Simulated scan of single mutants.
Amino acid sequence: MNVKLLQKATSGILVVGIGVGANLTNFSAVNAQIRPDKTIKIRHKNQTESILALSIEEQTNIRVYQRANQAVVSIDTDKTNGSGTIISADGMVLTNAHVVSQGGIVQITLADGRKVKADVIGFGEKGLDLAVLKIRGETNLPIIRIARPGYTKVGQRAFAIGNPFGRFQGTLTVGIVSRIDRERGLLQTDAAINPGNSGGPLLNSAGELIGVNTAIFTRGQLGGNIGIGFAISIDRVPEFLTAVREGRAPLVAQQQAAMFDEQLAKQLELNALIEVKGNLDRESNVLPVDNSYYDLYAFEGKAGQKISIDMSSNQIDSYLILLNSNDQELAQDDDSGGEKNARIIITLPEDGTYKLLANSYEAGESGEYQLKIEAISPRIRPFFERERINYYR
């Protein structure tokens, strides 16, 4: 929020094996009637009548989507994209603080495709990853009702709607509430959540808001969804909304922006080879969602520069996370270095500051580690090729 428990609604698009397996060209329903026995009778033009029966679960999915989708928006800033929930007819939108961390004015895309402007009018305090926007000039918008706090249960159905990867607005995914972390105010769900879902709603079977999607737990360098997502519980929302309405909520996301502040990082000079020894313990930084320890490093990189990053230890399960200057995830890894060692090999996409988290896989793991960062020189081409070919690609 994106990344191993950092949720960032950001960045590039990965398209994996998407195909259309059904031909719906000849399906043309002229009218449909819902019968008392819960089936739908569909009359086809120039075809014999057929019966399409929907299960109770399917009917619930459709009902939730129809009730809620028109009140889910896509949010775009200069650096990120995410989702949000309209909670008042005059245009108040609930989302994540990290989606709109720069504050000011953002662009909203409504479910009907209209693009409107919105102002950030409040952020959560003490690390609460929530923000409220106010859409300009709207008075009769559809809304999603907020569920009663304290009534969400493990095992109940959960529905997520949002704009994954900033490309698929209005996407519905379905799962259950897998776990409730009351101490940190988080709901865990297996409903698929991906970058771009950040700030969007997690709903119950009545189409009511039970959480604000904020993070995923993932493994490997691709950082995709593996069925462990997190939403801020609705129990944390009413007090925050009261502060916003009374004008007491901060207008700057100070604590969110400072989470991976490069000024707090250990600075590294990226030459041919860097070797660092470190130790993760109770004095280290703590990743909020899974309580794992990490050390933060920063270095300057160049576009097209290929680097190898290794983290090894015989005391902890090493985990690496690489971010760009905007805290957008570029790569992460658990065991590519062999056994419990981590490795990332990557070609840097741009000039600028990069941030590296030397992390433990499990919460509370303590121990020493070794970090090695090596600049891998590109193959040197003959001089006459250098004028015509960018040999870093």
Rank of each mutant, 00 (worst) to 15 (best):
Q33E: 15
L186Q: 11
F299M: 03
E183T: 06
L133T: 04
G196Q: 14
Y369S: 00
S205V: 07
E362W: 06
D190G: 09
S336I: 01
Q221A: 07
I144T: 12
I108D: 06
A32Q: 15
E58Q: 14
E125L: 05
L330D: 07
V73F: 12
D295Q: 07
S292D: 01
N61P: 08
T353G: 01
E374T: 03
Q102Y: 14
G82Q: 05
V20S: 11
F27Y: 11
I180F: 03
L322H: 09
V106Y: 03
T171Q: 02
I87S: 09
R248D: 12
S325H: 09
Y392Q: 10
L133N: 01
G207D: 13
I121K: 05
D129F: 10
S366W: 02
T218Q: 13
Q256F: 12
T60I: 13
S360D: 11
A32R: 13
S83T: 08
T214Q: 15
L6M: 12
K41H: 10
N324P: 04
I376H: 09
K306M: 04
D78R: 00
L323D: 08
Q47S: 14
E125V: 05
A97G: 15
L52D: 01
S308H: 05
I376T: 10
N279D: 03
D310P: 03
M259H: 02
R184M: 06
A147K: 12
I176E: 07
Y293N: 00
V174K: 11
R379H: 04
K306D: 03
Q7F: 15
L371R: 04
I210D: 12
L172V: 08
Y293R: 00
V20P: 01
I210E: 13
Q7I: 14
V30K: 14
P382Q: 02
N194I: 10
G207Q: 12
I34R: 15
L320E: 06
N291M: 05
L323I: 04
K45G: 15
I346T: 07
I143M: 02
R182K: 12
N204H: 06
Q370C: 00
G91P: 08
D310V: 09
